[in-house]
Simulated scan of single mutants.
Amino acid sequence: MAKTNKPQASFESALAQLEDIIRAMESGDMPLDNALTSYKQGMELIKFCQSKLADAEQQLRVLENDELKPLDLADGQ
């Protein structure tokens, strides 16, 4: 498993790495030391993804004139 010491290039790549870590940890075959390291890496990836999502939400707020509204699916029907 690759170390995540450097920032991720994209949200998608970080999410894919996080999914790999989750799969490996859920297998139950990981030694404790590796599980702890993977957990730390996963937490870093989660923080990165949350930051990217917050940035995207802020950009949407700007694009929507700070009037970000909940999605109403009934309007499209």
Rank of each mutant, 00 (worst) to 15 (best):
A2Y: 14
K3Y: 12
K3Q: 12
T4R: 09
T4C: 10
N5W: 09
N5I: 12
N5K: 15
N5C: 11
K6A: 13
P7S: 09
P7D: 08
Q8M: 08
Q8H: 02
A9W: 02
S10A: 06
E12M: 06
S13W: 08
S13Y: 03
A14E: 03
A14M: 08
A14C: 05
L15F: 00
L15D: 04
L15I: 00
A16C: 09
A16I: 07
Q17F: 09
Q17D: 12
L18Q: 01
E19S: 05
D20Y: 10
D20M: 13
D20G: 10
I21C: 03
I22P: 03
R23V: 12
A24T: 13
M25A: 05
M25I: 04
E26T: 04
S27L: 03
S27Y: 05
S27W: 01
G28H: 05
G28K: 04
G28W: 03
L32G: 07
L32S: 11
L32F: 10
D33C: 10
D33M: 10
N34S: 15
N34M: 14
A35F: 12
L36Q: 13
L36T: 13
T37E: 14
T37F: 12
S38P: 07
S38H: 12
S38Q: 14
S38G: 14
Y39S: 14
Y39A: 09
K40M: 10
Q41S: 11
G42P: 04
G42W: 01
M43K: 08
E44R: 13
E44D: 14
E44F: 12
L45M: 04
L45W: 06
L45I: 03
K47N: 04
K47G: 01
F48K: 02
F48G: 07
S51R: 05
S51T: 07
S51D: 10
K52H: 07
K52S: 11
K52R: 13
A54C: 02
A54Y: 01
E57K: 08
E57W: 00
Q58A: 06
Q58D: 01
R61Y: 07
V62T: 04
V62Q: 05
V62L: 04
L63Q: 09
L63C: 06
E64H: 09
E64G: 04
E64A: 05
N65D: 08
D66A: 10
D66W: 11
D66C: 08
E67S: 11
L68Y: 04
L68W: 01
P70L: 09
L71R: 15
D72K: 13
D72V: 14
L73M: 15
L73K: 15
Q77T: 14
